[in-house]
């Protein structure tokens, strides 16, 4: 997935916030032990969302810099 994202980024050299986010998520998740899920396996199984995935996204947004993660103040205003 990382190679794919890099290839896409290389083709179109403009910076994208989504590319930054995807790379940050990749960097956060890559150290975790994995077992490949290949095409054909777990067919029609949904994506299993765990709280740690959301924490990872939050941390990745933090990695992106000041404009990645919203300020808690902006949330408390609502």
């Amino acid at each position: 997935m990382k190679e794919l994202c890099d290839a896409v980024h290389e083709r179109d050299n403009r910076p994208s916030r989504f590319h930054q986010l995807f790379m940050a998520i990749w960097n956060r998740q890559k150290t975790k032990p994995k077992k490949k899920i290949l095409d054909g396996e777990l067919k029609d199984k949904p994506y299993l969302l765990q709280p740690q995935d959301i924490s990872t996204i939050a941390a990745a947004l933090d990695d992106m810099g000041p404009y990645g993660m919203p300020s808690p103040m902006s949330l408390s205003a609502s």
Partner: peptide, 22 residues
Amino acid sequence: AIIVRTDDRRQWPLENHAGEFF
């Protein structure tokens, strides 16, 4: 995030809802 964590190599039915070139 789920795909990367589980190393899911299945086909990802992805659509661009964000209007982002990436």
